[in-house]
C-alpha cells in the first residue's frame, strides 16, 4: 500500500504556527542543517519575520559514520553569522530519523561557543531513533520502514515537497 506523503508546504505553515508564540523576534536564531533543513529555515525565517540572521550547518565534520563511509562530498560551509555564546538557537531539519545528524549538529554548534538553549524543530518525524533525541517542535509524525528514505526536494520555483526512495 503506497504511503501518502504529507504536503511539505503545508507543514512549513504548521511549524511556523507552532514556533510563533515561542520565538523572540529580536533574539531567537534559526540554524538549518544543510541542505533540506536550510531550505525550511529560509521559509520559517520569512514567515516568522525574525530579525536575527539565519545560520546554516554542514555536519560532515562531526558525523559518526566517517570511519565507515569516509568524508561526504559537501562543499557547503557552515555559516553562523551571530554570537552563539548565550544565544537561544533553534536547529531546523526537514526529517528527524536516527537522531545522529542532530547530535552532529549540536557538536558543530558548540565549536562556535556555548548557547544558552538549543531546541529542535522538524517538518517530519519518521521514527527510528537510535539516540535519546526528540524534537521540541514537529509538524508531522509518520512511521516508515528502515528500507525507505524520506527526502525533501526543492523545485526550481522554490516549492518544497517530500519524496520517498528505497535505500
Amino acid at each position: 500500500m503506497p504511503i501518502k506523503l504529507p504536503d511539505a508546504e503545508a507543514l512549513c505553515q504548521i511549524l511556523a504556527d507552532q514556533l510563533r508564540p515561542h520565538v523572540d523576534l529580536a533574539h531567537t536564531a534559526l540554524v538549518g542543517i544543510h541542505t533540506g533543513g536550510a531550505w525550511v529555515t529560509e521559509r520559517l525565517h520569512a514567515m516568522l519575520g525574525l530579525h536575527t540572521a539565519l545560520g546554516v550547518l554542514n555536519v560532515s565534520f562531526h558525523r559518526d559514520d566517517y570511519n565507515q563511509r569516509g568524508l561526504h562530498a559537501n562543499t557547503q560551509t557552515s555559516h553562523i553569522p551571530f554570537e552563539t555564546e548565550g544565544a537561544h538557537i533553534i536547529i531546523v531539519d526537514d526529517v528527524l530519523y536516527t537522531g545522529r545528524t542532530i547530535r552532529a549538529a549540536m557538536n558543530e554548534l558548540f565549536d562556535y561557543g556555548r548557547p544558552n538553549k538549543i531546541e529542535l524543530a522538524v517538518l517530519a518525524d519518521r521514527g527510528g531513533r537510535e539516540l535519546p533525541i526528540a524534537a521540541d517542535f514537529c509538524a508531522h509524525t509518520l512511521n516508515l520502514p528502515t528500507a525507505q528514505m524520506l527526502e525533501l526536494e526543492r523545485a526550481p520555483d522554490g516549492t518544497l515537497s517530500f519524496r520517498l526512495t528505497d535505500k
Binding site: 562531526h62 562530498a73 562543499t75 555559516h79 565549536d111
Partner: peptide
Amino acid sequence: TRILDTAIPFTEVAEREVKKVPL
C-alpha cells in the same frame, strides 16, 4: 576538483572559537 571542493568547508574551521574537528 573533488579535492578542491572538499577543502572549501575546511577554510571556515580556522575562524571558529574551536579550531578543531574530530575527523
